[in-house]
Every structure is written in C-alpha cells, then in structure tokens.
Computed example of a mutant assay.
Amino acid sequence: MERTTLFILLAVLADGLAGLTGGLLSERWLKRHLSALVAFAAGALIGAVFLEILPEAVEAAGTGAFRWALASFLALTFVEWFLGPHHHDHSAHAPGHPHHHDGLTSAPSTVVPSLLAADALHNLGDGAAVAAAFLASPEAGLAAALAVIAHELPQEVGDYALLRAAGLSRVRALLALGAVQLTALAGAGAVLLGSQWMDGLEGIILALASGTFLYIGATDLLPELRRIQTPGAARGRLLGFLLGLALVATVGVIERHVLGAHG
C-alpha cells in the first residue's frame, strides 16, 4: 500500500508540474505546436480509456462499469448544454490566435474566479481518477497518469493565456494555477481513504473517469483540431494523435511484460 501511495503522489506531482508549463514555454513554440499537443492529448485520453482504464473498471465493478461511464459522459453533455461550452478552448486561447491578446485588460475580470474554480474541480477529479487507477493496477495507474498529464499540457496553456489576458502577471498566473493544482491531492486522498471503507470504490471511480476522459477526448479536443486546415498542421495533429495512442499502449505493454516479469 505504501508503494501504491508513493506512485499516486508522484503522479499527482507530475500532473501539477505539467499544469505550470504554460508560463515556461515560448509563445512562438506554443503557436507552432499547440495543435499537435491537443491531438496528442486526445490520443492519450482515448487510448487510456479503451486500453487500460475501462477494462480495469469492468474487472473491478463488473458490467455495471459501463453504466457509470455512460452516466459521467451524459452528465458532462448536459452540463455543457445548459451551462455553456467547456471553458478549455485550447486553440482560441493559444498565443498567436486571433482571440488571444497580450494586453492586460483584454479579458473580463470575472474570468479569473470562474476559470480557477472550474480548474480546481477538474483537478479534483483528475487526482481521484489517478488514485483509483493505481489502486486497481499499476498498468491502469500509469495509463491514467499519462492521460491526465497529456491533457493537462494544452489545457493549462489555454488557462495561463486567459489569466494573462485578464491582467495577471506571469508570476501571479503561475501561482494561481499552482494553487488549484493542490485540489488533485485532495481528490487522490479522498479515494485512498474511501477505498478503505467502501469495497469497489476504485472500480466506480475508474468507470466515471472513463466516461469523463472519453467525453473530453472525443467531444472537446478532437473537434478543435478541425479548425486548422493547413497540410502541415494536419500532419502534425495526426502524428500527435498517433503518438498519444502509441505512448499509452507502449507503457501498458512494458508494464505487463517487462516490469511484471520482475515483480
């Protein structure tokens, strides 16, 4: 159990560090590669769902896992229908995009609290998903961690751009994003504690995470990639998507057939 807890903490820490990359990368590099990053995140999320997370959820919770996954998918759908689009519009918030501005007053001040609150809830769910995955198996844990980190990169780049547009300095924007990353620890801790009191909790959390990751990958990330039509961008996003899938698949194979042989 101590080893699993250590893996969870390291994965959550890596996720938190990924959330701060927006302020560390040059705007020229982000403008050039953000489409490929979004595609990579979509590939990693969708690959993690079907190759590792949902199969582990079914093994832990039975076929009822599909109902939990469907419930989380529909819940996100209805939330967006009635409350508006998902706040993480990566390409629109990217440096160099027509809607992105470097000025300090180009976004309303109300953006900051709503964005940070939504980000905190999102990170809470990510932490819970990673913890539940590691409790189910190391393979599922690594797949969930990779999917969360891959999604965190383009997502937090967009959030960082919005915070800067709302008037926050680079340091204040990074501190704000770093603070909301701590909610991932709360989510992971809640699952660790809850799993000791409720049998099968990790299976339910994994199923819910499957529906959430599938929704984000298929309906949030992939449609954004249709906006860029140049041949070079198309090749970059195709390569990014395939690399995301390949990374999750490769890590699973290594964990099962190489590391597992020495376990």
Rank of each mutant, 00 (worst) to 15 (best):
S109P: 03
P108L: 13
L124H: 04
A133E: 01
V148Y: 01
E139I: 01
N123V: 00
S137H: 14
Q155E: 13
A165C: 09
A144D: 06
G127C: 12
L121R: 07
A132C: 10
L124Q: 07
R164I: 04
T110Y: 08
G141E: 11
A129E: 04
I149R: 03
L116M: 13
A128D: 10
A143P: 02
F134T: 02
A118C: 08
V148S: 10
G141N: 13
G141Q: 10
E156F: 02
V130C: 02
A144R: 08
L121P: 08
G141S: 11
Y160K: 00
A117G: 12
L124C: 01
E139Q: 15
V148K: 10
V148G: 04
V112L: 11
L116I: 12
F134C: 01
V111Q: 06
A132I: 07
S109R: 15
S109C: 06
V130I: 15
A133K: 03
V112H: 07
L142D: 00
A161T: 01
D119P: 07
Q155P: 02
A140T: 07
H122T: 04
Q155W: 06
A147H: 09
A120Q: 09
A120V: 09
F134I: 06
L153P: 01
G125M: 10
F134L: 09
V148A: 15
S114N: 07
E139Y: 06
G127S: 11
A161M: 04
A150H: 09
A165Q: 15
R164L: 15
A107N: 01
V148I: 15
S137P: 12
E139G: 14
L135T: 02
A140F: 04
H122I: 06
V111N: 05
A145W: 06
A161N: 07
A144P: 00
R164K: 15
H151P: 01
S114I: 11
L115V: 12
D126C: 00
V130H: 07
E156W: 02
S109I: 11
L162N: 03
A161Q: 12
P154C: 09
A165P: 03
A128L: 10
F134V: 10
I149S: 07
G158T: 05
E139H: 00
A128P: 13
P108K: 13
V111K: 08
A118Q: 09
A120D: 03
A165Y: 02
N123R: 12
L116W: 09
V157Q: 08
A117N: 00
A143D: 08
A145M: 15
A132P: 00
L135G: 05
L115P: 03
L142Q: 10
L142R: 04
R164H: 11
Q155Y: 06
Y160W: 12
A131S: 14
A147W: 03
A145F: 09
V148Q: 01
P138Q: 05
P154N: 10
A140R: 04
A131N: 05
A147N: 06
P138N: 07
P154G: 01
L116G: 11
A107F: 12
A118E: 04
A144E: 06
A165E: 11
E152A: 14
I149Y: 06
N123I: 00
